[in-house]
Design a protein around this nucleic acid. Structure first.
Lengths: 341, 341
DNA sequence: GACTGGCACTCATTTCCGGCGAGTGCCAGC
DNA sequence: GCTGGCACTCGCCGGAAATGAGTGCCAGTC
């Protein structure tokens, strides 16, 4: 026979599972009926009282059943649940992701929609971070003699393009030369490593190329390295309206607003150590407006590296095991897709 | 003194304005208090009865005030309102748009957020359509001897990139040659005009370049011309929760879902003739889920051309004059920005 | 003929109240 | 340590009554 402490945890697990499923406070009687706990409702009530004492569950009002607290979910996630393997149908949906994806934008959009579909939550995918990519190729396309477009292609598939104004006209063959020099120095170099190299390029440039090189260098450093703009894709906001109204007390407003703030979102799903999945439950969130929400996020990248993160946002009352599994699976899959390029 | 018919229209205008402002059915008494109509509530009641008879307003229930119908809004938009000029602050916000915009993505994102802010509605901006752009430059970046990245830059600033698998290895100098040939033929050509030229390129290619050219041509035609994927940016979904719950009977669900369907959105804001602003009110929308919403949209582009569209989506109870003005102003401004590149 | 004041009427909304019942806490007993 | 029993709490439901905004209509006035 299991010890009393063990049973208490079983009761907590049962409460979480039932509540996630039914969205309604769960009472002692219903609990013993739906789960083979082997004890009577009265006993469960005692356990519940203890759990409430410890802060794992609470009563919305006196004559109602119990609801897990953030702390209860935390314990559930940490110790009471196993990651749920994806179903065959889900796996198949994932396999379909790759076919026909035509470029990085396409891949990211498909990924975020897939994740939203699998989890029925709001999904967020960060584009591969420029800061963590390296240069595959830089192209200079002359628009006029004093203006050119700088196109950078990274190993993660991102393509960035910037307008560069040249202080003085530069003939076409010089542009070709500049391109050659730059690519020879920067090809394969991680963007974060470029500043000294770029500085060196300006130093060592022939006198007649100096000003042009300086213009290029400043655009490169200022808009591609320092002000490294991170991009995001979002999907499944409609899922916020899925559950009970109680999920987000008051209105969806603050949540929707937070989801539109890219900086906030990045902070939310970012900051992951490699190959861990991070779960932030309710209060644990630093962002005020998302105190009623939970976030499951992880990093992704080809192989063991991390070039970006992705995750889902939903009510604290969410299917943690399922969502964690989905987030992990999608991250791994996205990493594989990136590795193929 | 104004005729009775004129006054009836004044009453309709007053009803629309009040309702948009207060979000509450407006009664005869409140109407004469807030607007100098110069007649008594009883007279207004008679007018209201007539307007209701004609289908311009209706009563949510017997003992309530009147609310405009879709037809009422239509009349209001067509005949009773003047486009409201933007305020100084709004103009200034728009001017700030340009500074520091770093590439097309940036411009589009800033634009859509600006539009959402100005109108306090959901804003949608279509990226400049590939179909309506022309080729500025094509670049071929070798990844390996049998694989290269095709980068296309258009005059509207879009940069697209596709992976091309070559059936047999192609030496670097041949790639350069191919690039030269392609650019010579396609530079400045509208994408819609490219198919015969591309076909010709394959025809006339030297035997040793034939297969490579064929691979390039197929990628070009299939993924950039035929399957011309349109892109969109969206902002301000949080504004949906702004107004009364009554705005969208039931839930936001269908609206949010529709907003995630890019195809639907494109249909919604697209199909505009040059330099007209289109207003679709409630029922006039073809999309089932958006029958409770109105859409104000227009095209934009450098000069008089149209390369994409933008617009706002909101409850039928919206500030039409203000939103029309904002949509037009932003479209013109975006066109100007594009023209500068 | 157009407008107005007056008045009866309608009906959604609000408030109050009693009954119901899910669920609890506690206690005595096994 | 578990269980059955029991009194108790309190949110929710449904009906009744009060409220009041707003209307339609009519007779009267300019």
């Amino acid at each position: 026979m299991v010890g009393a402490d063990d049973r208490r945890l079983d009761v907590l697990r049962a409460i979480v599972e039932d509540y996630v499923l039914t969205q309604e406070p769960v009472g002692s009687k219903a609990l013993v009926e739906r789960h083979r706990l082997g004890v009577s409702p009265a006993t469960v009530r005692n356990d519940m009282a203890a759990l409430e004492e410890e802060g794992y569950i609470r009563q919305p009002h006196t004559s109602a059943g119990r609801v897990p607290t953030d702390r209860g979910y935390r314990l559930f996630v940490d110790r009471l649940s196993r990651v749920k393997p994806l179903s065959v149908a889900e796996r198949r949906a994932m396999e379909r992701l790759l076919v026909g994806a035509v470029d990085l934008d396409d891949v990211v959009h498909r990924t975020v929609r897939l994740l939203a579909q699998l989890t029925r939550q709001v999904a967020v995918v960060q584009y591969p971070s420029l800061a963590r990519s390296s240069v595959r190729h830089l192209e200079l396309v002359p628009i006029s003699t004093t203006r050119l477009t700088l196109v950078m292609i990274t190993d993660t598939g991102r393509v960035e393009q910037r307008m560069v104004e040249l202080p003085e006209p530069v003939p076409a063959e010089d542009v070709l030369h500049l391109r050659g020099v730059i690519n020879a120095s920067l090809g394969g170099v991680a963007l974060s490593q470029t500043p000294p190299i770029v500085a060196d390029l300006v130093e060592t440039a022939a006198a007649e190329h100096r000003t042009a090189m300086r213009a290029l260098a400043s655009v490169l450093l200022e808009t591609l390295v320092e002000r490294t703009e991170e991009r995001l894709a979002l999907a499944g906001t409609a899922n916020l309206t899925r559950g009970n109204v109680l999920d987000f007390p008051g209105s969806l407003r603050p949540i929707l607003e937070a989801l539109e703030e890219e900086v906030v979102l990045l902070k939310l799903i970012g900051e992951v150590e490699p190959s861990t999945t991070r779960v932030r439950i309710g209060d644990e969130n630093e962002i005020e407006d998302l105190r009623a929400a939970s976030v499951v996020s992880t990093g992704y990248g080809p192989g063991r590296t991390v070039v970006g993160s992705l995750g889902v946002v939903g009510p604290t009352r969410m299917d943690y095991p399922g969502n964690i599994a989905a987030v992990r699976a999608v991250a791994r899959y996205l990493g594989d897709v990136l590795a193929q390029n």
